[in-house]
């Protein structure tokens, strides 16, 4: 069992990503405080190395939250974000780290329910898997 609270980093776009987080907060939704959000202009900005470095710096799980595909403010940004997450997932699998630690989500500015669901999914994954290496995988 991990001896600390989970640490989860979320790269969240400044358009509908953060709008959905804001709407959730201002609709009284509650979620686990383990989520640490870092804003990016578009999830297309997110690099595979960002996701890996976050894990290296102590995150148990990392997610990327962008606009719905086909409604990305920058047209294909959230599709790029998804591709990056998929690429990192495959890399993690190759080195024996659970690919569920990295995930892609999409939301729109009118979804008040989605962010707490995202948070709770990631917290479940992080709590189940513990810090990287704690179950013999990775390092």
């Amino acid at each position: 069992m991990p001896d600390r609270e989970p640490k989860i980093v979320g790269f969240c776009c400044e358009k509908h990503g953060i709008d959905s987080v804001d709407l959730a907060a201002r609709s009284g939704r509650q979620y686990d405080s383990s989520i640490r959000l870092v804003r990016v202009p578009c999830t297309g900005r997110v690099d595979g190395t960002h996701l890996l470095k976050a894990l290296e710096e102590g995150a148990d799980a990392v997610f990327v939250l962008g606009c719905l595909e086909k409604n990305c403010y920058y047209d294909t940004g959230s599709i790029e974000g998804r591709k990056r997450v998929a690429y990192v997932k495959s890399m993690l699998s190759e080195v024996g780290i659970e690919p569920e630690r990295v995930e892609m989500f999409n939301a729109s500015s009118s979804m008040s329910w989605k962010f707490s669901e995202i948070a709770s999914n990631m917290v479940k994954v992080a709590a189940r898997l513990g810090p990287i290496g704690s179950r013999g995988g990775g390092r």
Partner: peptide, 19 residues
Amino acid sequence: HFTDEQLLTEAAVYLRGDF
């Protein structure tokens, strides 16, 4: 304004906080 250093530093400092 969103360089690798800026994003990763923010993530790293945030992760350093224990809560």
